[in-house]
Design a protein around this nucleic acid. Sequence first.
DNA 1: AAAGATCGCAACCGCGTGGGC
DNA 2: CGCCCACGCGGTTGCGATCTT
Length: 243
Amino acid sequence: MVTVREETRKGPWTEQEDLQLVCTVRLFGERRWDFIAKVSGLRGLNRTGKSCRLRWVNYLHPGLKRGRMSPHEERLILELHARWGNRWSRIARRLPGRTDNEIKNYWRTHMRKKAQERKRNMSPSSSSSSLTYQSCYPDTPSTIGVEGQELHGGSGCITSILKGNPSDMDAYPMDQIWMEIEAPEVPSGMGLDGGNDNACSSLTAPLLPPTAWDYYPEACWKMDEEIKMAPQFGYSEGVGPCF
DNA sequence: AAAGATCGCAACCGCGTGGGC
DNA sequence: CGCCCACGCGGTTGCGATCTT
């Protein structure tokens, strides 16, 4: 259920707001969030561009995986956090379909708890904040190919995660919305296979052909390199406006 | 069955950074 | 060079759902 607070229009997003945002982003792309907030009418509802971006990135993005972390992902998070600390966005780029927010939440709930339990069971002299995961998780391999290139795609470990867990998509709650706006079907595995490292940056990969901005000169920006990776999501060119 | 505790996750906030002017 | 704007990141909070007593 969603409670709507009229005055400030903060808090949970309504289905209507989601639809408005999805449609607008599909039209204009994942940039100029203030503009998107304004054009979509959400600005009038006190949704800032920032809020729109967050909603999109963390919930509405079609490349998102929902559901539980696989053991593989769990291990990746452990390893990467051991390397990079709380660089959640960086870690998220190595976990296609997972957002930094999701990983952050996951870490806070699951890992901290486990670490504390472990710590309690072991000698209290072990470190607390900068956990050494080899000690916390003896079954965690000392390295799983996290060294840059290996993780980037050569090993294919990430793609194996995706291929091995298609059921992760089962709980994807936005299906209905995407169907309603006639979204092209999201291919199984989200098109992230192929061992392409760029797939790892799925959340920043563009959805849209650079169309609508052409008609809004004031809103033009140069499309970055990632634009070229659009086909990984299987979006067709014929995505039309929905309002 | 009810109350309290805990969990899980969406959302917000403040700040830093980079690019354009 | 400094200012402004847009964006992204990490930390934190709020709250419904679930579990425990």
